[in-house]
């Protein structure tokens, strides 16, 4: 989009979309707009014109506090669960209970 955005279009608004009432808002994309009024009109058309959204949140990208630095100096992988395979244990437990895995028929 770069070359088509004139000098007036300087803000990026991150767009979060709620599909149905009560559901969480999920990131849908962004709009580049000169101000909130333009972002409102443009986001409506891009993320709502087919009735696919219950509500939108428009957040100026500069308002987003991003976290990317993580300290892991002491190799804390013992805190994670990825060493444990529960697949086999689940199979055995299900066999014992006589129930099938969810989704299996």
């Amino acid at each position: 989009m770069g070359s088509r955005n004139g000098a007036g279009c300087v803000m990026v608004f991150e767009v979060f979309r709620q599909e149905k009432k009560g559901q969480p808002f999920t990131h849908a994309g962004s709009v580049v707009a000169p101000d909130a009024a333009f972002a409102d009109a443009w986001a409506r058309e891009q993320y709502g014109r087919r009735g696919e959204s219950e509500a939108l949140w428009l957040v100026p990208r500069e308002s987003v506090h991003q976290v990317t630095e993580w300290a892991d100096e002491f190799d804390l992988k013992y805190r994670r669960v990825d060493g444990y395979s529960i697949k086999e244990r689940l199979r055995i437990a299900r066999e014992r209970a006589g129930t099938a895995a969810p989704g299996a028929s």
């Binding site: 989009m1 088509r4 955005n5 004139g6 279009c9 709009v31 580049v32 707009a33 333009f38 009109a41 443009w42 409506r44 058309e45 891009q46 014109r49």
Partner: peptide, 13 residues
């Protein structure tokens, strides 16, 4: 249209 966003909006209208 002058910007990508306006292109979508204007076409939709």
């Amino acid at each position: 249209a002058p910007t990508l966003e306006e292109d979508v909006a204007f076409s939709s209208i």
